[in-house]
Design a protein around this nucleic acid. Structure first.
Length: 127
RNA sequence: GAAAUAAGUCGUCUUAUCGCUUCGUUCCGGCGAAGAGGAAAGUCCGAACAGCACAGAGCAUCAUGCUACCUAACGGGUAGGGGGAAAGGUUAAAAAACCUUUUUCACAGAAAGUGCCGCAGAAAAUUAUACCGCCAUUAUAUGAUGGUAAGGGUGAAAAGGCGGGGUAAGAGCCCACCGGGUUAAUAGUGAUAUUAAUGAUUGGUAAACCUCAUGAGCUGAAAAACCAAAUAUACCUGCUAUUAAGAAUUGCUCGUUCAAUGCAGGAGGGUAGGUUGCUCAAAAUAUCGGGUAACCGAUAUUGUAGAUAAAUGAUAAGAAUUUCGUUUAACGGAAUACAGAAUUCGGCUUACAGACUUAUUUCUUCU
RNA sequence: GCCUUCGUAGCUCAGUGGUAGAGCACUUCCUUGGUAAGGAAGAGGUCGGCAGUCCGAUUCUGCUCGAAGGCU
């Protein structure tokens, strides 16, 4: 329960890293789709930082209204904040979370998807 | 009491747990305070503010367009004038006229000039070129020549309308009334209205070009300033100390300025973080006063988001409103609109579940 | 945040005030033993939507919906 914070240090803000993360030719980028979310991440060793940096994106193409986009971004962030404390995320350095669905979805669905992904990552790390 | 229309106001609330942003405080563990809208939207107008330019002048371009007022300003608003439409009333045989109410109008100029007006029609615009018709003459029984725009027909629109005189038949050819034009007087700040005189009286279109009047320098906070880091007045090519050519002068021209630490191009390198701008402002609320109103003035109180890939959220419980079912006052289910600040204001436009207030009209019930 | 352009037949596009067109595709017929090509005929449009100007709007004006692109 100590790790339920989400401050500025955990947000991905560097343009260079973002460009690197969305480069399709880069072999270090791994991608997993768990509806309604898609995760793009890197497993590099990180030095000095305690937690991974995360980026959340909701496309304007799929969801026209700003109110709904904001709501979904907040729900994704909330689901990450509540679930990250359960698992060991030492291997994860950068993570981009994309919203794929074309309609508004409830918090429950997003949370399930996030939980599944984090579970898989932490297991991969232990093996 | 219900419905419709118009105008205006509001537009879910409370508690708990875990979080986010800013500010304050701190014994650095924390603690406290504040935290989306009426449209924050569209980006359609107008400003503030900032940078660049600025001796100045002209042209072009764009916008606005009845009058007065409000306003920092406006293409916004208020009031008035005029035109159109609808309803009712009065006069009247009818056409129509007048009055009242409601509603609506991007409402300067077509007598400065140019263009356009398909099809139909004789003719679509410098006193018109005659299809049918009417009249005259002539030959003859239907043609020819001439006159005629009153009637028919065509069309969205036919050279003011209507009645009388007049005439071979007709025509503002002449006259009365009406409409419109011009001039004058009176009323009004003005748009305009009323009255009088005057002359036969020139289709529509300017959301076609255009004319007139008024206004606008250009670019927008990703503007701009400072700090840190990095550094380059590196290098190459061209242009020039005189004329020419060139460059700048932010649409063009004149004019003005420029001589190397300059201008233009090439190739290449670095940074891409922070602070200010940034939220106290043409501020909001209340009361009183002025004004038909938009709005203005005085007094008091309040101190009201400031993020930067971008905070204002998630979960649980309860309440409120609407609706559906069971069934008659409780239970259960569902729903609670439009929509998210990005420098800040004033408007306009568009979206909006539901609730409330006021006014008008209609219907019903009671007195 | 700011700016620009485009919505016309199933698809790609013309048309810029006066009866909405072309190519490909589609349907029917001819041709062939059969198919393709070729020939003949035909169907298919609220000109994105709502208002206004005009006698008349795809065209002009305003609002609105959607799509694409640019500035950085």
């Amino acid at each position: 329960m100590k790790q339920q914070t989400f401050k500025k240090e955990e947000r991905l803000r560097s343009l260079k890293v973002i460009e690197q993360l969305f480069d399709r030719n880069n072999a270090a980028n791994l991608s997993v789709g768990v509806y309604p979310l898609r995760f793009i991440y890197q497993k590099n060793e990180r030095s000095g930082k305690k937690m991974p940096e995360i980026l959340i994106s909701v496309s304007k193409r799929n969801l026209k209204k700003a109110v709904i986009r904001n709501l979904i971004k907040r729900r994704i962030r909330e689901s990450y904040r509540l679930n990250k404390g359960k698992y060991d995320l030492k291997s994860l350095s950068y993570l981009a979370v994309l919203f794929i669905a074309k309609e508004n979805l409830s918090f429950e669905l997003i949370q399930k998807s996030m939980d599944k992904f984090l579970n898989r990552i932490s297991k991969g790390n232990s093996v």
